[in-house]
């Protein structure tokens, strides 16, 4: 009994302190007021988000008078919490069920721009896709089998997996989704631990070159116009300091404008991106190609498709009615940024 008491005291006191405290200890520019051009941006590393990462070296941030501090985020759910609690000002990553659930509960965070898409021109293969192991020939073969995804149903990656499965007439209910890190997927495919995996560059090419995985669907067809790479803002840039929000998107658009065509051949892009992502330059220059629209146009349909798909998996979304674009997107900031550019 004494042990239970002690435990409850410690737990409750910790939570009470955490819940009450530190409202003012906000992100660099945050604090609920004018950022003065100093922004803290949380990010998930990935080539599909590249313009936000190379904008510094291309001089786009300084051109806008911005002082950007990047904070790595390991888990998209952390970013959503930090954003809504003003611990970061912006998040460069992907929307997820966690974001939808929090917005449904009244959190102030919105998607303000889209970044990389797999819709690259010509014969260039998509940088991510559903790849099967040696015993799998088609998507239909995956029925009842284990399929690896980066995170559980509800993540942006799982949405792409759902789109790929749909090409073979399957849903999440027809397979067992196994959350695995991207680095572990290759080995799991090789030793038969999973029948298929949603691979992301550069692991896609490694798996194909290693001869233990083959593409099951054409991702360009499966994903269509969907894009899950995005920039999201919290209350500081949405409400208190929209001007800095506009300036930040102008800078990202400036970098995206430099990344049209095959930007992997541009050393001024590859070198800073490799440095930022802490990978060899060859990983970037030989990796997957994402297409960037300099207008950063948002595909609100993706957010609707994501919600519809996640609604079909019980327990993923905590609300009934699909949230409209007005609740999830603030397009005016982007329009102001593009107009000013």
């Amino acid at each position: 009994m004494r042990a239970i008491g002690s435990l409850a005291v410690v737990l409750t006191a910790t939570l009470a302190l955490a819940a009450c405290g530190d409202d003012g200890a906000d992100a660099g520019g945050g604090g609920g007021g004018d950022t003065g051009g100093a922004l803290t941006v949380g990010y998930i590393s990935g080539a599909s988000l590249a313009p936000a990462f190379v904008a510094e070296d291309l001089g786009c941030y300084s051109e806008q008078g911005l002082d950007v501090t990047f904070e790595p985020i390991n888990n998209p759910a952390d970013a959503i919490a930090f954003l809504s609690q003003r611990k970061i000002d912006a998040y460069v990553g992907s929307p997820s069920a966690g974001m939808f659930n929090q917005v449904a509960r009244g959190a102030t965070l919105k998607l303000v721009a889209s970044l990389g898409s797999v819709n690259v021109p010509g014969d260039e293969p998509a940088p991510s896709g559903l790849y099967g192991g040696k015993d799998v020939a088609t998507v239909e073969d995956l029925r009842g089998k284990r399929v690896a995804s980066l995170g559980t149903v509800g993540t942006a990656t799982s949405f792409l997996l759902g789109k790929a499965l749909a090409e073979g007439g399957l849903t999440f209910a027809d397979v067992e989704v196994v959350p695995l890190s991207v680095a572990d997927m290759g080995e799991a495919l090789r030793n038969g631990g999973v029948a298929a995996a949603l691979l992301i560059a550069p692991y896609t090419q490694q798996a194909v070159d290693g001869g233990y995985a083959k593409e099951l669907v054409d991702s360009k067809i499966a994903y269509g116009e969907e894009t899950t790479s995005a920039v999201m803002y919290g209350p500081t840039l949405l409400e208190q300091d929209r001007d800095t929000g506009v300036a930040y998107l102008k800078a990202v658009a400036c970098a995206a404008g430099r990344m049209t065509g095959d930007w992997r051949k541009d050393p001024e892009i590859v070198a800073p991106l490799a440095k930022f992502m802490k990978v060899p330059e060859e990983t970037i220059s030989g990796g997957g190609l994402y297409a960037f629209d300099p207008t950063l146009a948002i595909n609100a349909g993706t957010l609707t498709s994501m919600q519809e798909m996640f609604h079909d998996t019980e327990g993923t979304l905590t609300y009934e009615e699909t949230l409209g674009a007005d609740k999830l997107v603030d397009d005016q900031i982007r329009l102001d940024a593009i107009d000013a550019s």
Partner: peptide, 8 residues
């Protein structure tokens, strides 16, 4: 972990 990811 999953509840945190799903924002619940």
């Amino acid at each position: 972990w999953n509840s945190w990811n799903l924002g619940v």
